[in-house]
């Protein structure tokens, strides 16, 4: 089996026509292939996220991750860029949607593309994957333990983001939700609330919650890593994309 792939930094057109940095990985085949926009987590456009982009390419998808902090911190290390973006108030929702739209257009413009694009995000990126799927024409969305899609903001909690569960009715595609049963943000109650909203909106979804896993259990370099949950979660994600992103 021919399994070569190409991974490289590219420039794509993001929100407002801005040129933004992105990390792209593509199988070196003629296709047609489905594609995935990977949304990096709040700690940044880092090595772990790029590893995920390569994983999707190795599994037969074109993939790209836009650097959401390109504008504030071009060329900076991921941690410095994350701190800079945070000090400036973080990534506005509207800009996130525009950057994911640009990433999806980049993927659909590849000669090997079958035109079908999914998105995935972990943590803050999980919420953003849901947000993007509510505003853009996508074929599959994966929310890995995104906090504040639903849920109640604790009193006195100085959040700069608001829940977006009311957008469930606007989702353009099926949603796969992967959660840790021990997570507090999103809590099992918040996940149940999201499920009710999906049902009420008549949207296609599948949720999986892993016992013994808390927040961030996919991250291999953090103490919350749960190998069994992460391995099964990856299998669920790839199966979901193979079903929804095939031509």
């Amino acid at each position: 089996m021919y399994d070569a792939l190409l991974a490289e930094t590219v420039t794509i057109t993001g929100h407002g026509g801005d040129a933004i940095e992105a990390y792209s990985a593509r199988p070196l085949t003629a296709g047609p292939l489905g594609s995935v926009v990977v949304i990096h987590h709040m700690p940044g456009y880092d090595a772990g996220t790029k590893e995920m982009v390569r994983r999707f390419a190795a599994e037969g998808f074109n993939a790209v991750c836009p650097n959401l902090y390109t504008r504030e911190a071009p060329g900076a290390s991921p941690d410095d860029a994350s701190a800079t973006a945070r000090a400036l108030g973080g990534v506005p929702d509207e800009r996130l949607v525009g950057d994911v739209a640009g990433a999806a257009a980049y993927l659909r413009g590849l000669t090997s593309s079958n035109g079908r694009v999914g998105t995935i995000g972990h943590c803050s990126g999980g919420r953003q994957a849901f947000l993007a799927a509510a505003h853009l024409e996508l074929q599959a969305a994966v929310d890995c333990y995104g906090a504040f899609v639903t849920g109640t903001v604790p009193e006195g909690f100085p959040l700069q983001v608001q829940p977006i569960g009311h957008l469930a009715k606007d989702l353009s595609c099926p949603l796969l939700g992967i959660f840790g049963a021990d997570d507090q943000y999103p809590s099992p109650e918040a996940v149940a609330e999201l499920e009710e909203l999906m049902k009420a909106a008549g949207k296609e979804y599948e949720f999986h919650s892993y016992e013994g896993a808390g927040h961030g259990f996919f991250a291999v370099d953090r103490p919350g890593y749960r190998p069994q949950a992460a391995t099964d979660g990856w299998a669920k994600i790839l199966d979901f994309y193979r079903r929804h992103l095939s031509a």
């Binding site: 987590h41 709040m42 945070r86 000090a87 108030g89 973080g90 943590c123 803050s124 906090a147 504040f148 909690f157 100085p158 959040l159 700069q160 983001v161 997570d183 507090q184 943000y185 999103p186 927040h215």
Partner: peptide
């Protein structure tokens, strides 16, 4: 979770 909480001084 990503708390989004940020205090500046």
């Amino acid at each position: 979770m990503c708390t989004y909480l940020t205090e500046l001084a």
